[in-house]
């Protein structure tokens, strides 16, 4: 592995793309997209779109700023493993909230008044 210096143009192009995508994500938030109820949760398509754009931006940062091509095999495998286990955590935990009976969790949306109960 080595770090051959990339051309400054590559960095500038990446930078420009990130700026453009930031503007797009601001504009996209102005469009109201439908919200889909799923169990006791609500899936908001706006956030799906915003996250999709964020993922594209993140990929650009990883690919060019963080020199994906220079990453060793070990780093690639482990980075993928990290994302994979993060998704495992998300999916299994959300599987709980998705499938809970509404009655089971009824109480916890009604917030109480905040008291500091310590002495």
């Amino acid at each position: 592995m080595s770090f051959e210096p990339a051309k400054p143009q590559t960095y500038l192009l990446t930078f420009a793309a990130l700026i453009v995508l930031t503007i797009i994500t601001v504009l996209a938030a102005r469009v109201v997209l439908p919200k889909i109820p799923m169990g006791i949760m609500v899936l908001d398509l706006n956030i799906v779109l915003a996250m999709a754009i964020a993922c594209v931006k993140a990929s650009l940062v990883v690919l060019y700023f963080m020199h994906f091509k220079d990453m060793g095999q070990v780093s690639k495998v482990w980075a993928s493993a990290g994302v994979f286990f993060l998704l495992v955590m998300f999916f299994l935990t959300l599987g709980d909230y998705e499938n809970r009976h509404p009655e089971e969790t009824k109480g916890w949306t009604e917030s109480g008044v905040l008291h500091d109960r310590r002495p």
């Binding site: 592995m1 919200k35 799923m38 006791i40 949760m41 609500v42 899936l43 908001d44 956030i47 220079d70 990453m71 060793g72 070990v74 780093s75 482990w78 980075a79 493993a81 990290g82 994302v83 286990f85 993060l86 955590m89 998300f90 935990t93 959300l94 909230y97 949306t109």
Partner: peptide
């Protein structure tokens, strides 16, 4: 290089717990 990437993997999971909390409350309290 591998060590730094591994460290960043731990950072991903460190923030990951908060992102999970965000997803849950965001979908509940839209």
């Amino acid at each position: 290089s591998a060590g730094m990437w591994l460290f960043l993997v731990t950072e991903v999971l460190f923030f990951g717990g908060l992102f999970l909390a965000y997803i849950i409350y965001r979908t509940r309290y839209t």
